[in-house]
């Protein structure tokens, strides 16, 4: 994955979800992105999950974890039905990196689980 995530810098604002939808579908939406914001609100437990080509990366605050795509979150549009992150290959910039206000998502490399 061509991204480096620092979960504890995340503020749960969801800018990355919308930025990703701008890349995927040129629209503002939380339904078409490769990124899903997960929040257990009363516990203040939050982070993002990213669908990669093979797996799903969970940027959990207590430490990252890889899941298979079938194990990803459910919801109105499960991650299984979403496009995988391709590192914004049709652009010069990565939109989630550009619009993440806290620096939680940066350009970099994270090895996939395999």
């Amino acid at each position: 994955m061509e991204l480096k995530i620092t979960p504890l810098k995340c503020t749960g604002c969801g800018a990355c979800e919308i930025a990703c939808s701008m890349y995927q579908d040129e629209t503002n939406s939380t339904m078409v992105s490769s990124i899903i914001l997960h929040r257990e609100e009363k516990k203040n437990y939050f982070g993002i999950m990213i669908k990669t080509q093979k797996d799903v990366y969970l940027a959990r605050p207590e430490g990252p974890e890889w899941l298979s795509q079938s194990e990803g979150a459910s919801g109105p549009k499960p991650i299984l039905l979403r496009p995988p992150c391709d590192g914004c290959k049709n652009r010069e910039d990565k939109l989630c990196v550009k619009f993440c206000p806290s620096g939680s998502i940066e350009e970099g490399f994270t090895e996939e689980a395999g």
Partner: peptide, 28 residues
């Protein structure tokens, strides 16, 4: 515990505090 941003906010002005479990508990 952690700061929280509203939808797409670059300067979060909210903070979550924990007093029913350790503030540094990061798990659910």
């Amino acid at each position: 515990h952690r700061v929280d941003g509203c939808f797409n906010c670059p300067i979060p002005c909210r903070v979550f505090v924990k007093y029913n479990e350790p503030a540094n508990e990061l798990s659910s």
